[in-house]
Nucleic acid binder design. Structure first.
Length: 748
DNA sequence: TGTTGCGCAGTTTTT
DNA sequence: CTGCGCAACA
């Protein structure tokens, strides 16, 4: 035990050994947060204050949960399998599986991921004949999820305006359909298990007396409903140990509520907040940058990171001409870092949005550098995987209409939109699932015996209805054949069986570009095998939940040394020797969409704070003057966040070609950085001094006068010669595009 | 019935 | 630029 606690600092030690009481730990980036959490759990168990059975720990990502389990098992010789450690969604799922009956769910209920949910909403909108133009499916999805987050069922939403009334009209049938199919979306997992605990005193008291210790990681990211769930689960004897960092709250957009921290203080009578401010990760300059940056936010709980290490290197800044130039710069720097002996896996390329990875990937590919992209296309979200899972889902739960629709005619088996429409009509008339409507329709047709496989694809030349019957009958036979075939098989073989007999394998074998997909299907069998190996419940239903809840975790090609590419969001909780943060431009980071949201800018700044604090030793910041976005070139000005970092922490890398002053130009305006601040960083080039006929007279940030519109500033430039035009924001006349050939602009 | 081509919209972040 | 949905073909 002593070795476990011996190298903790006093604050960490206090947090780890805190007596049985609720506590709030404010843990800065890199301050050993996870370590404190896991060591506390180990300590509680080892000192006999709690049994593994009596501890519940909740994290925000699957990665964090896994990490926690690994660390605990390295400290204690216990089986962590039975411990309740996981994400909110994962734990709620577990609760609902255990009490599915009391929760009003079928035993084999399935989980809809966002895409499944959206598909279901589209189906419902279509069924209602709703105007998709007017009511975007995404908007409906947003509304439903928000309502659930507020704890409201469709019948409970108070609609005072037309829009809300309309939304409720969609929410109601959506709710019904989910119940009928036996499926639950992400928000449903939370809401339903919350309701279960509210309504069922026996179950509630059972868990209340069982979980003596509840530990919450990333507490700043909890939503209102999650907090209510926690409060409900915590009994009078339960100590809730919450660890969080308000400065790293980056999920407000999906309902995270930092206010929970203050409420927690009140509700749980927290007398003292423990602050972990010593950072063990980054060198001084990086920390200073992060500290200064975040100080621009208001309403912080207050916390300043410090380190006992030296200043370290300056933060390197690169001003690129184009996004391609920026990518080339990154590649060159990565190469030289790598040749200095830094492992590729210790270098991260971070960006604000997934779309930005493209250019980087392209450059890395050409340079033959190994890289790995996190996020983006996830394994369990690939279409071939979704197809295979849909077969499995239908086998587990025939009422899953969404699954049925996905694969009823894939691979093609002659069930077209016509026959489907009939079946859908039947189903809605009978109030039954598509599957039972199909059975009904073919019941008189004497479907082939279940142990005969239907022919793969039918020839042409039959009448439509004949073909429909054949197709539908064949489909039913196929599903039942597979269901019977799978009854006695272990999970991996079930998956293999389905991949093979569904016709998916044959389909992708025949397809020219199908090799990757086939490989992924194989990988799915492997995923099932390792799932059975690791999970305590190796059932098909459990595997399917796993697939929905951990869409991202499974990746092929793990383990080889590769660069790490990811969004800033997914980098939270990680650290790297070197970090490249690219695309530091207004509009991208902070993102345009954040401007209208209240608190949007501050959330972006926290995101920036998270990004900066990922770096241990070296940090690169880069921005580009132009960038391809949505198929056209955009001209951006550097991010305000760059300006918020003190100049003396920065080292400006040489811009592209000698003699160019472009890097300085962008700074002239609209920022009012004084020339003094710029001295030293620009190798002394005087802005606007080298203007001549060859370089354009007009540049971004240039102040101009227009005879009619008055004074303004150039936001962007485009085109050459006769086509050349500029976008100008006038002080009084708004923003306009002007053709240089005609507009009589004069420099101000 | 399946395939192809066109037009259109979209992307912030994740369980 | 891409992926999707919808409209005309084979």
């Amino acid at each position: 035990m002593s070795s476990m606690l011996s190298d903790l600092n006093p604050e960490q030690l206090e947090a780890v050994t805190l007596p049985h009481q609720s506590a709030l730990v404010l843990a800065g980036a890199g301050s050993g947060k996870t370590r404190v959490l896991t060591t506390r759990i180990a300590h509680l168990i080892q000192s006999g204050q709690a049994s593994p059975h009596g501890v519940l720990a909740v994290t925000f990502t699957n990665k964090a949960a896994k990490e926690m389990l690994v660390r605990i098992s390295s400290m204690l010789p216990i089986n962590t399998r039975g411990m309740w450690i996981g994400t909110f969604h994962g734990l709620c799922n577990r609760l609902l599986r255990a009490h599915y009956h009391d929760a009003g769910l079928p035993q084999a209920f399935q989980i809809l991921d966002s895409a499944d949910q959206l598909a279901l909403i589209k189906r419902i909108l279509k069924g209602l004949g709703a105007d998709e133009e007017k009511f975007a499916p995404r908007q409906v999805q947003w509304f439903i999820n928000n309502a659930k987050e507020e704890g409201m069922r469709a019948a409970e939403v108070e609609a005072y305006d037309d829009f809300t009334r309309k939304m409720v009209e969609f929410y109601l049938p959506y709710e019904q359909q989910c119940n009928k199919e036996g499926v639950a979306d992400f928000a449903e997992l939370l809401l339903r298990s919350y309701e279960l605990l509210v309504r069922n005193e026996i179950i509630r008291e059972h868990y209340r007396s069982r979980f003596i210790h509840i530990l919450v990681d990333e507490f700043q990211d909890t939503s209102r409903l999650q907090y209510k769930w926690l409060r409900l689960l915590a009994g009078s004897r339960t100590a809730v140990f919450a660890v969080g960092d308000d400065d790293q709250s980056i999920y407000a957009f999906r309902g995270a509520n930092t206010g929970n921290m203050k409420e927690f203080e009140r509700d749980f009578h927290i007398s003292k907040i423990i602050k972990l401010e010593q950072n063990y990760r980054s060198h001084g300059n990086i920390l200073s940058a992060a500290n200064t940056l975040i100080r621009n936010n208001s309403g912080r709980l207050g916390k300043n990171l410090w380190t006992s290490e030296g200043h370290g290197e300056l933060i390197r800044v690169y001003n690129a001409l184009t996004d391609l130039d920026e990518a080339a710069f990154v590649v060159e720097e990565v190469k030289s870092l790598h040749s200095e002996g830094i492992a590729l896996s210790q270098i991260a390329l971070l960006y604000r949005s997934n779309a930005q990875s493209r250019v980087l990937e392209h450059a890395l590919f050409n340079a033959a550098l190994a890289y790995r992209v996190y996020g983006g296309m996830r394994f369990f979200e690939r279409q071939e995987i979704k197809h295979a899972l849909a077969y499995l889902r239908l086998i587990a739960n025939p009422n899953d209409d969404g699954a049925l629709l996905r694969i009823v005619n894939f691979p093609a088996r002659g069930i077209g939109t016509r026959s489907l429409e009939q079946i859908q009509d039947d189903a809605s008339r009978q109030g039954a699932s598509l599957w039972s409507a199909m059975l009904e329709r073919c019941g008189r047709l004497a479907p082939p015996p279940a142990n005969t496989l239907p022919g793969a694809s039918s020839g042409a030349g039959r009448t439509t209805s004949e073909q429909t019957k054949k197709g539908v009958g064949g489909f039913i036979a196929l599903i039942e054949f597979m269901r019977h075939g799978c009854e006695k098989l272990p999970l991996p073989e079930v998956v293999e069986h389905v991949v093979e007999h569904s016709g998916l394998a044959a389909h992708y074998r025949a397809e020219r570009e199908g090799a990757d997909r086939l490989e992924n299907l194989n990988e799915l069998v492997n995923a099932a095998a390792s799932f059975v190996h690791e999970a305590e419940d190796g059932s098909l239903a459990a595997f399917l939940s796993h697939a929905s809840l951990e869409a991202g975790e499974h990746q092929a090609g793990e383990g080889r040394d590769a660069l790490q590419l990811m969004t800033v969001h997914s980098a939270k909780g990680l650290e790297f020797h070197s970090v490249f943060l690219s695309g530091l431009e207004e509009g991208l980071f902070p993102h345009d969409n954040s401007r209208n949201e209240t608190g949007g800018l501050e959330e972006e700044r926290r995101l920036m704070y998270v990004a900066v604090t990922r770096a241990r030793r070296r940090l690169y910041l880069s921005f580009s003057q132009s960038r391809m976005l949505h198929g056209q070139t955009r001209y951006n000005i550097p991010s305000r966040f760059l300006q918020e970092i003190p100049e003396n922490l920065l080292k400006w890398l040489k811009p592209q070609q000698k003699g160019s002053t472009r890097s300085a130009e962008a700074w002239n305006s609209p920022f009012d950085r004084s020339p003094g601040q710029m001295a030293g960083s620009m190798q002394g080039t005087a802005p606007a001094a080298t203007q001549n006929a060859t370089s354009s007279r007009w540049r971004i940030g240039q102040n101009v006068i227009h005879p009619k519109f008055g004074a303004g500033v150039i936001l962007s430039c485009e085109g050459r010669g006769a086509d050349a035009r500029v976008e100008v924001r006038f002080n009084r006349a708004g923003t306009k595009w002007l053709l240089l050939e005609y507009a009589k602009l004069t420099p101000a």
